[in-house]
């Protein structure tokens, strides 16, 4: 399996504050990598840095062999990298369909728009039902579905999800993870999954990183980390 994403020594933050300190990780094509940690550990910042929303003050990000550290955020979707932000960040005054159409804004998406819309609605039947509804009126679970569908509109190679389970009922959480797994296993999509819900995350991931106060403290196969006492006590409420 080839490496699709490399993060090397990235330091990032907001204003005067530094949140990530010299963080490095890699993701191989087709795998599901989980990044877990407590609130405020820097998980969202990591995804934002990879997505280009937050500048890396030091370090390098390489995607499919290309150094993308300096590229603007809006370059990503057109070149195979998509992020589903925390809470989905749908456009509240636009309909579900309009949100999906925007997911295909980049040239890569526009070329395949019609068929992609059909494909995505096949994966998420809810989209067809709620097509004309304003995104702001949807429930938490529905919003998450739409957000993931929207991110898929450009047929990304790497999909990043920021805490997709937040605010969702256990049933919905199960559904979301089920879909994520299917996308990775069946369709070959590479996934980075940031989660506070460590149990679920480690259950579905191949490998995982533990982020603590901006530093990577543990890394390894999910199966291994799952069994480790420290992890269980610190994060899984055991």
């Amino acid at each position: 399996m080839s490496t699709i994403l490399t993060v090397e020594g990235v330091t990032a933050g907001y204003g005067d504050a530094t949140v990530l300190f010299d963080v490095s990780c890699t993701v191989a094509a087709g795998e599901i990598v989980a990044v877990v940690g407590a609130n405020g550990a820097g998980k969202t910042t990591l995804l934002s840095a990879i997505a280009g929303l937050v500048p890396a003050r030091a370090g390098r990000i390489t995607f499919r062999g290309e150094d993308i550290t300096g590229r603007p955020a809006h370059w990503r979707p057109g070149h195979g990298l998509a992020l589903v932000a925390e809470g989905g960040r749908l456009f509240p005054f636009m309909t579900v369909e309009e949100n999906l159409l925007l997911g295909a804004y980049a040239p890569r998406g526009r070329a395949i728009l019609k068929e992609r819309l059909e494909e995505v609605m096949a994966v998420f039947p809810i989209l067809r039902e709620r097509r004309e509804q304003a995104a702001g009126k949807l429930s938490g679970g529905e919003r998450q579905m739409v957000a993931i569908a929207r991110a898929l509109m450009c047929r990304p190679d790497l999909l990043m999800l920021d805490e997709p389970s937040v605010g969702l009922s256990p049933l919905m959480v199960g559904r979301v993870f089920e879909i994520v797994e299917r996308l990775a296993r069946r369709d070959g999509l590479t996934v980075i999954l940031v989660e506070q819900n460590v149990t679920e995350a480690l259950a579905v991931a191949d490998r995982a990183y533990v982020l603590d106060h901006g530093h990577i403290t543990r890394a390894g196969a999910a199966a291994v980390l799952r069994g480790e006492r420290e992890i269980q006590e610190a994060y899984m409420g055991v």
Binding site: G78, L83, R89, M94, L102
Partner: peptide, 11 residues
């Protein structure tokens, strides 16, 4: 409505 999210769409 949300300029950061718009960036993520490639805008």
């Amino acid at each position: 409505q949300d300029s950061a999210a718009a960036r993520l769409m490639g805008v």
